[in-house]
Design a protein around this nucleic acid. Sequence first.
DNA 1: AGCACGCCGACT
DNA 2: GTCGGCGTGCTC
Length: 586
Amino acid sequence: MIADVVFDLPLHHPFSYLVPPGLRLSRGQRVSAPLHGRQRVGLVVELRTGDAAGLKPIQRAVEPVPILSAAALALGRWAAEESLSSLGSTLLSLLPPPPRAGAAEPVAPAAEPHHGAASLPELWVGSQREARLVDVLAGSSDAALLIVPDRESAARWAKRLDAARLDSGAPDADRRAAWFAASRGRARVVVGARSALLVPLPPPATVALLDEHDAAHKPPGAPRLHSRELIIERARLEGSRLLLLSPTPSVESWWRADSGRFLRPAPEPGPWPEILTADTRGILRHHPLTLPLTRAIEEMTRAGRRVALIVTRGGAALACNECGLLLRCPECGIALALSRDRQTLGCRLCARSEPVPDTCAGCGGHVLSPFGWDPERVQASVIKRFPRLRVSRDPRNAQVVVGTPTLLRNIPPGSLGGVGFVQLDGLLRLPDFRAGERAWQILWAAAEAVGPRGRVVVQTLHPEHYAVQAARAQDRDGFYKQELRFRAELGYPPFRRLCVVSVRGRSEAGALALIAEAHGVVSGLSGLTVYPAAPLGAPGARSSRWSFTIKGPTELPRLLAPALVPFAERGRRQAGVVEVEMDPVS
DNA sequence: AGCACGCCGACT
DNA sequence: GTCGGCGTGCTC
């Protein structure tokens, strides 16, 4: 008997081994086998008969039973193809860590799902979404899996649901125990981050994704796929009920609901806080607080409530300080990024580059600046203005807390009296087609964090921006309608898909040659838009990192794979490393 | 002669 | 990704 085994390698083919007599193996089982002179852990993806001459034997099974079901293997294969990644690196990043050699543990075989009746995924956006999730899971005897974006959420939700944890924040032995307990139906509800997405569950199962819109569901590295996409495919294949939770869904998910592929129960509009805008034109250069924000701090702290000041670094893009006009790429619609040497403006998508203009094309103003505040400067200014308040960057024990948008993550609703955005334009100026979506999500998170009795103050040059207007009016439909129109006009997701090919070279010349070769490999394919390559980081400064973007239809990975996968696999000589990122989030 | 380094293929 | 083979060229 021959076993085909995949390893955590950037190689798209399995390795064949002799199954020694007496060792009983199944597909989906982890094994230790010799590779490159040492024993490494891999996963059996195929068992077959044939001529085993010359093959090395598998050393041992890591567990006595498969860790993945046949359905989970198929799902992993889909995920690898969808992300243009190797099956091995995808599957092995979706498993709990192996036990120490010799450690005997009671384990049960992976549950094999029946193909149930497919029901549509449900997108839950209302303010009671999390309470309802708790009710649904508590009121059912079915197995359930909750995927959360980070370890902190995993800890909180494991407690709230009295569930076992599969994420890397739990001790290895506990993770493993939870995995096999879930597989045999002993742990009914399990919580984890993305590494839990393949855990086999006895049918019928309910699967849920918390904070569906969160970019933390697609961090760098394997599996190079958003947890949302993987869990949607999982639910479809096994016929599980799928709940996607977010107050501000991704534009992709909203679009799927619009087109009837998701159910989206209409939320009842509830009480909503006051969202004020304060025009910062010419005001913010020396002091970070406008009058409305100063008042909010005074009133809220007097009432014993905390205020958060959200600061985003100015950084990348230029806008006119007089009229607020943002310099955008005329083709791509995203903010042009200021180069490190401040001489040129460049588009991160199409690589267009142009000199920094002297005057504003809108009003003729002469001050075009990226100006922004950092948390340290804001903190110092606020302390000066309010010497008797406790102003800190640490949320514990502060009356005024200064921080970045992450401050609004994982914060209980209504726990703040006020949120002030020192300069929302920092978010709107991100050189990314998702800038508007990010601003929208953060504004909404601020409104939920202050609750109906709180106040949000938005300092901006763009009070008319549709993300601001829609957040103020609690108008989800309004925001997504505008955003989808923009995405459709300029050809962004969900209407087109993007792929970024990047190169890390050892030398400048090597990187340049490699990116040119990669560009040539995909330029011949029809139906795609292949943008020119551009250096990453400071131009001229011995760039050894280059990248280019490809835009294409839904089947983009399948179009790219035949040419790009063999190239990326072999195109990693001394010249450098080729990376392919489908559906980049930033 | 002996060894350090780096290129490059191979890993079953 | 990681390892080792082997060629080149340098040093003790």
